[in-house]
Amino acid sequence: MLPDKDFLIKLANTKMPYGKFKDRYLIDLPEHYIVWYHRKGFPKGKLGDMLTTVYELKVNGLEYLVRNIQKISE
């Protein structure tokens, strides 16, 4: 089940707050990085929820949903 609309809008506009990929939109994080987090354990809280969703979107080839929201938000 996909998250609600407001969550996806926030996800589309959220950037990674730290690390090697700081300031990159979460949906634009490399797949290998998201898979690494999946194996290691996602952080707690909203960021972890968003990264978990990004993982599910990427695994299922649904990144375009978030990219479409980004285009609409421009």
Rank of each mutant, 00 (worst) to 15 (best):
T14W: 03
T14F: 08
T14E: 07
T14Q: 04
T14A: 06
T14K: 04
T14D: 09
K15Y: 03
K15R: 13
K15V: 08
M16L: 00
M16I: 02
M16D: 03
M16C: 06
M16H: 01
P17V: 07
P17A: 06
P17I: 02
P17F: 06
Y18P: 00
Y18M: 09
Y18S: 09
Y18K: 13
G19F: 03
G19E: 08
G19D: 02
G19P: 04
K20I: 01
K20S: 00
K20L: 06
K20W: 00
K20Q: 01
K20N: 06
F21W: 04
F21V: 00
K22A: 05
K22H: 01
K22V: 05
D23I: 00
D23N: 08
D23A: 05
R24M: 14
R24P: 01
R24K: 15
Y25L: 11
Y25K: 12
Y25A: 01
Y25V: 07
Y25T: 01
L26R: 06
L26P: 07
L26V: 08
L26F: 04
L26T: 05
L26S: 04
L26Y: 02
I27N: 02
I27A: 02
I27F: 04
I27D: 02
I27E: 01
I27T: 02
I27C: 00
D28L: 07
D28P: 10
D28E: 14
D28M: 12
D28K: 03
D28Q: 11
L29M: 02
L29I: 00
L29V: 03
P30W: 06
P30F: 11
P30Q: 08
P30M: 04
E31W: 12
E31H: 13
E31Q: 13
H32V: 11
H32D: 15
H32A: 14
H32S: 11
H32F: 14
H32E: 12
H32M: 10
Y33M: 12
Y33L: 07
Y33I: 11
Y33V: 13
Y33C: 07
I34W: 09
I34R: 07
I34V: 15
I34G: 05
I34S: 12
I34L: 08
V35Q: 14
V35M: 13
V35K: 14
V35H: 07
V35R: 14
W36S: 10
W36D: 13
Y37F: 14
Y37K: 15
H38L: 11
H38A: 15
H38Q: 14
H38F: 12
H38I: 05
R39A: 15
R39V: 15
R39Y: 13
R39Q: 15
R39D: 14
R39L: 15
K40R: 14
K40G: 06
K40S: 10
K40D: 03
G41V: 03
G41I: 05
G41S: 05
G41T: 10
G41C: 04
F42D: 02
F42I: 06
F42M: 10
F42T: 11
F42P: 05
F42N: 10
P43C: 13
P43S: 08
P43D: 12
P43Y: 10
P43A: 12
P43M: 12
P43V: 11
K44Y: 11
K44C: 08
K44W: 06
G45R: 08
G45C: 06
G45H: 07
G45E: 10
G45I: 09
K46T: 15
K46W: 15
K46C: 09
K46F: 10
L47S: 10
